[in-house]
Design a binder for these strands. Structure first.
Lengths: 247, 247
DNA sequence: AAGGGGCATTGATACAAATCAAAAGAACAG
DNA sequence: CTGTTCTTTTGATTTGTATCAATGCCCCTT
């Protein structure tokens, strides 16, 4: 049984103020993926003293658009969807946060998007003000955060091209290639399997499509022997087809 | 005659290595809009010594996607379009840079988008390495750059919602409201006039539409007495209509 | 095993925006 | 002023994707 599935069975303890971290930053599975890679061993010790574990159940809301950002998160397990909503209910999923991803890079006082657990989540949680103070004393951490924010800006631009200029088929291919690339960096992933823990509606809202179109395109790809649909995801059969279509 | 029109008559001197700045940072018209707002008077003097003026003609290319980012720019006059292109010629305009906007916030070694002059441009130019060194010695400048990058990330997310979930009419309304808001911060703008120095194709590529749809929607808005088309831009007649439609 | 609720899939039809095509306007050079 | 070119506008038609409407399929609970 994989890690995320196991975690989704746990219960949320997000209101628990007591530190109860079983792990040590130095052995953290996502350290090499996260902003913590900027820190030396002694700095990690300091950071660890500021951290608390946060667990969220599937469908739990980590925070809402316009909420005050009292804390920031480093996701260690599970998948989070980042959502901007319109008053009439239309949604745009602006991204999926995977293990190693940081929520709160901007250090701004309010969130500008919502974050909802797609699977059970484990995250390293910090009080925003404390994290901000820490980052001001460690310029290389601030620089790393800036590099991460900047990298996200590049991804956001990629996504604009996808939303504005790609066909439904190209959008799906790009999404699947992106997910394959991102999972390949996560420890414990099964090579070849592209996990899709999010539902079809989330994928549709990420790609600016409807759920029906997502379903039709994926199933057509399966009929065309480009991929096979498996429990919890898909597998590429014709990698070249996807590489040629993707952004 | 407005400033930008005058500037578009000048010739590019971007290869000129000699500093020839007629102005003083302390009297810079875009200082309060730009990252320079983070700096004290003595720091501005230092920065000014690093700066050179860059002029670009209409249609000039400031830099291309994948080019090495040897320099960074602070736009002081004119409008620049930021473009990502697909191999088959499809384009997505990811943004328009107006006076006060900074190109190169990321401090990365290569550009990830092209920048093309929509009008004649005047910019403050810095060698990237020198600017980066300076920012490392002035943590409040780095923090300000991070705040600007973070703000752009928010705008990018807004744009994703626009591209993924708005109708053509809503896209145009959002674009026009955005332009009105942004021009209102630029010194010397005429209140009420929404300048649109970019062509219809640029607007289409910014909104994920075709030039025909942009033309049709704007002209329909004029027929419906929502706006009037004037030389070099438009004017709102029914502000409420736009506020209700815009993101 | 049976019932129920949430997703996902599939089919039929509608429609918003793209595409194709041409005319009308601006901008510019000689 | 006059021809040339480029951009914008307008019209006719097509089309990709959305919408509307069932149906199927898990997974969960009892």
């Amino acid at each position: 049984m994989d890690n995320t599935a196991r975690l989704s069975e746990t219960h949320a303890h997000s209101s628990c103020a007591v530190r109860s971290r079983g792990d040590d930053c130095r052995f953290c599975g996502v350290r090499h993926l996260s902003i913590c890679q900027a820190l030396e061993s002694d700095e990690l010790d300091l950071l660890e003293k500021m951290a608390s574990d946060a667990h969220f159940d599937e469908r739990a809301v980590l925070f809402r658009e316009e909420d005050e950002a009292g804390v920031v998160f480093n996701i260690t397990a599970g998948v989070v969807r980042l959502v901007r909503s319109l008053p009439d209910g239309r949604r745009q999923v602006t991204g999926f946060a995977l293990p190693g991803d940081f929520l709160g890079l901007s250090l701004e006082k309010t969130w500008h998007f919502s974050a909802e657990a797609v699977t059970g989540i484990v995250a390293c949680r910090f009080r925003r003000a404390a994290f901000e103070d820490f980052s001001e004393k460690k310029p290389h951490l601030l620089k790393k955060m800036h590099a991460f924010a900047t990298h996200e800006l590049g991804l956001a631009q990629d996504h604009m091209v996808l939303l504005g200029r790609l066909t439904a088929e190209e959008k799906l291919a790009s999404f699947l290639v992106e997910m394959k690339r991102r999972w390949s960096r996560v420890a414990g992933h099964e090579a070849g399997l592209i996990r899709l823990p999010m539902g079809r509606q989330d994928i549709a809202d990420y790609l600016g499509l409807t759920i029906e179109t997502v379903s039709r395109v994926i199933n057509q790809m399966q009929r065309d022997r480009r991929l096979v649909i498996v429990p919890d995801g898909i597998r590429f059969v014709d990698q070249t087809y996807f590489d040629d279509l993707a952004l």
